[in-house]
Design a protein around this nucleic acid. Structure first.
Lengths: 172, 172
DNA sequence: ACTCGATCTTTCCGTTGACAAGATAGCACC
DNA sequence: GGTGCTATCTTGTCAACGGAAAGATCGAGT
């Protein structure tokens, strides 16, 4: 066991995302993460400053992952929506933190850049602003409700598909 | 100043909802609420058990308010969606807690009853399950994004109206 | 007047986030 | 190969918090 961890930053982000995914942001303890990583309780502060700093890093990584997922999904809103839901289901810890202003340092430049990148990926899907907002709302709403346990089903994307399809087609 | 508060339960729920609305659930402190109410820091425990108990009461009240709002809104999905968004904007503290399983006692009977009542109000809008899920998703997603600050605008309902209308009509 | 249950206080404990000050390691530079 | 420099991590400390225990106070019903 050397004095230095090697990649504490990476380990903390991963552990934080996993812990948030499992027990929510409220139950997150920096000291516990430090214990898991085998470092002292004050080590994380050097990399992240404070608790919000850790979650800010998680959120920034989340927006980057989301932007990548949207970019890979293709051009139409249905595919993008499914990618959005798939991302949320695959990275619940990241997702839970990304849209909670009270948990992160909203003005962090790294976070802002990642958020903008995801925003651009979303805005690039269509030139119709209202349609973009509507699509974002359906996908975000379904993802949120799914993660909160309000919706039943085994596979998030499979459950989302008919819902998103209907929203795209209309007829509500 | 008498020994008894009078209606500590009510005061705690109101203060908790206000505090959550202002600074998020993470920054909530039972001791601070107790100070505001002018009672000792252990007084709330008698009424709510623990911290999750306070938020459970807030969530239950939220679902009741939401069920009322949906019942008053009328039958069509657009009106219900607008009522949903209006509720979230008017009671951000309640809304923030209602769909966060990690913050409340999910199996609390009062909460479950209130949640069921809101669920019934939602399900009663249409017999089409897919349409119901889609409408719920749009309204919930827009409300969540709005409260997180991701959407710009001055009035939530005014901003939501064209978006919800488009989702109902389709053409994304 | 008396009892009894509900409400609230006081006191205590373990945990947490944050801060300050110092130790250690690796690395450039000479 | 030594010397300073900086990033990284540790130790020690503090106030605040959530929760539990035990007792005080009130008020409603008899």
């Amino acid at each position: 066991m050397s004095y230095h961890h090697g990649d504490l930053r990476r380990a903390m982000i991963d552990a934080a995302a996993a812990a948030v995914a499992e027990r929510g942001p409220a139950a997150l303890s920096l000291r516990e993460l430090a214990r898991l990583a085998g470092v002292s309780h004050a080590a994380p502060a050097h990399h992240f400053g404070d608790k919000a700093g850790v979650l800010t890093a998680v959120a920034a990584e989340g927006f980057t992952l989301l932007a990548d997922a949207l970019a890979t999904a293709g051009g139409d809103l249905l595919a993008a929506g499914l990618a959005y839901v798939r991302f949320a289901a695959a990275h619940p810890g990241h997702f839970a933190v990304m849209f909670d202003p009270g948990l992160v340092h909203g003005d962090d430049p790294v976070l802002a850049a990642a958020r903008d990148r995801a925003g651009d990926a979303l805005a690039g899907l269509t030139s119709d602003a209202v349609a973009a907002r509507a699509a974002w709302s359906v996908a975000h709403g379904f993802a949120s409700l799914w993660l909160s346990g309000a919706l039943t089903g085994t596979d998030a994307a499979a459950a989302a598909e008919p819902v998103l399809r209907r929203a795209v087609a209309g007829g509500l």
